[in-house]
Nucleic acid binder design. Structure first.
Lengths: 222, 222
DNA sequence: CGGAAATTGTACTATTCAGTTAATTGTGTC
DNA sequence: GACACAATTAACTGAATAGTACAATTTCCG
């Protein structure tokens, strides 16, 4: 059941509500995620989160125990949501160069469309990963991405289009760096250097630049 | 205050202190910079900052007025310190390819050696650049970097080693992305994918990868 | 010297905010 | 219809914390 559906439930009258613990949990989590992404862990206010849910502060503590636990659950939820969006990507039927190009462009676009996720990861890095470290759930989700990239890279090496001696980790690092920075530092970069890279056209160019940079990095030199 | 207490006061010299407003200001600023970088704007505590200076909380307000103003001054100071470290870089006497390689490796290393600066920029992005936006000082500092890169790029195009149609901004964007991400996301990246890229050897490889990626991106294809 | 200005320490306040108390109402199930 | 548990509300508490009042001390400079 989607959170939006729950919103349609009538609240007024005496016999307003249905028992829906999962819906209430999901509502709180979605609101908290947005609020932590907006203001950071210390900056977010429990009263503010409560006001933006259709339930109460008491219920947040009822379900999540404390601010820190809520933050951690929101972080996990954010990773889960983002990774589930990545599953549709089918790269096996493409030739290695096309596949790597598609993966890079997908990652670039995907990061751009999930700024809240990016902001939570920034916040988590500010906090030195102390909440991510406690979450085994998240760690497992990310191995798959590397495994996929490994297969892709080996295919490319075999057919001679990719150079030898790289590791999928280093390729992933490069793709992530460009795609992440593009979103995470958009504000300061625009302020310091103008916003020409952050209009529609600029971002098209940037996406193209990203895949050029990655492909030229991995490709065997003729 | 009893005379004994006064004599025991660890005030340095025999009879108290010298007027040193600039020293006190600098002390506060350096301490605040470290503390904001460590804990963020909301997370940092004025009492904690005060305790780590050799002066008092009262003096922080005396000189800086408020927490937010102190944060802004610390941000400015951080930019100033970092940019002044870049001045030693002389690229004009190198051929374009060597110069670009050197610039990339320098930026990579420089970012790595200034994690507090990186963290303040992350924090500023979380706050959507609202303090950076108020600081004309900082904006001017960064135009120079682009101008230098522009000259370098044009030299390379003229001698045929760089491809046409790029802008210095896009090159700077790529160099920054890699160098910044390497530091900003070191914790989460290590947690998720292992820390092999973040040992001494791993970082040497990463630096090499950075300059490879930038050079291959800019170089004319033979 | 002696007064003005700069500098500093102590102790305080006003507020914000995470977390709680305690009582109540609705729902599903037997 | 009785029982357990899900869900809800509003006021409250205690700790943390940004910011201040004010007196005391020191330097500066005539």
């Amino acid at each position: 059941m989607a959170v939006e559906d729950f919103a349609a439930a009538p609240k007024g009258g005496k016999t307003g509500w249905k028992q829906d613990p999962e819906g209430v949990r999901a509502d709180i989590l979605a609101t908290a995620l947005a609020e932590f992404a907006e203001s950071g862990l210390s900056g977010a206010r429990m009263d503010e989160i409560a006001a933006k849910t259709r339930t109460s502060k008491r219920m947040i503590y009822y379900y999540f125990g404390s601010k820190n636990e809520l933050y951690q659950k929101a972080l996990e939820e954010s990773y889960r949501a983002v990774r589930s969006g990545e599953e549709a990507l089918e790269l096996d039927h493409l030739d290695p160069v096309s596949a790597l190009k598609r993966l890079t462009e997908f990652t670039f676009t995907h990061h751009r469309e999930n700024p809240n996720f990016i902001r939570l990861v920034m916040i988590e890095n500010i906090h030195k990963g102390q909440y991510l470290a406690q979450s085994d759930t998240i760690k497992n989700l990310n191995r798959a991405a590397i495994a996929n990239l490994d297969a892709l890279y080996e295919r490319g090496v075999k057919t001679g289009v990719f150079r030898e001696g790289l590791s999928p980790l280093r390729i992933h690092w490069l793709i992530s760096a460009i795609s992440f920075f593009n979103v995470s530092n958009a504000t300061t970069f625009s302020l310091l250097f103008g916003s020409e890279l952050y209009g529609d056209l600029g971002q098209k160019t940037a996406c193209q630049d990203a895949s050029d940079a990655v492909l030229n990095f991995v490709r065997a030199q003729p």
